[in-house]
Amino acid sequence: MATRQTRTLARFMMAPSVLLLLVWMIVPLAMTLWFSFQNYNLLNPANVSFAGLFNYKYFYTDPAFFQSIANTLILVGGVLVITVVGGILLALLLDQPIFGQGIVRILVISPFFVMPPVAALVWKNMIMHPGYGVLADIARFFGATPVDWFAQHPLLSIVIIVAWQWLPFATLILLTALQSLDGEQKEAAEMDGAGFLDRFRYLTLPHLARAITVVILIQTIFLLGVYAEILVTTNGGPGYASTNLAFLIYRTALLGYDVGGASAGGVIAVILANVVAIFLMRAVGRNLDR
């Protein structure tokens, strides 16, 4: 395969993808970086001037900034914990001998294919609505006062919705990994006198390690940018209670028309994403090499 000709050809075949992604990565990022040092408001586009670090200072001193970072981390962390733990339990359950396993799998995976606005609206109106939602009906049936989810627990509500969307993904991947565990290994462990919990801890969990890493990596990529779910449910509120960094930047940019401020936020978001990415890429890179 390694003649000189094929290698030259290979480079030509790779070029379009690499160039496109390079441009796609560098141009907008450079623009974001440039704008972040400018006073630039879309309502007053004629009046653009150098701002120095003002935008960063402004963003940094905004109390909403720290809350949005905290919210971002809670959202990502909360959903990861729920989906990974829940995914392992569900995968173990579905791996048992059950009737109609194929249909059960289809039911469990379905939420993953539901587009975020639909998922959010369905939960908002039909499940969590304090007046007409299913949860409110159930609460009233037991004589309790219905919870106004999005007013009282806005962030938690969003975590629940997003976790519902991603739990199927984690389950499916962990189930697939679980089913590739060698049956003879399980039997050998049983012969060695390992009980269910021992087998889970020393055999199943290490076997799942790779799949868990992958689940965490891929979900983190998507969870850092959760947007539509917030937009159609709480719109970031009340106050900034359910505003994550992505939503804050959107607010600053397209609601506040503050290009400079939003760009500074964007740069911070890139830095945050990179910190997370470096750790994840290391873990995954190592895992994928095997």
Partner: peptide, 23 residues
């Protein structure tokens, strides 16, 4: 190169919302 490509997915969409919107 593959890892780098994947890392472009890590770039948060909002970070480039402003320039993309303007473009």
């Amino acid at each position: 190169i593959l890892m780098w490509m994947l890392s472009t997915k890590m770039m948060p969409a909002v970070a480039v919302l402003v320039p993309i919107y303007l473009i």
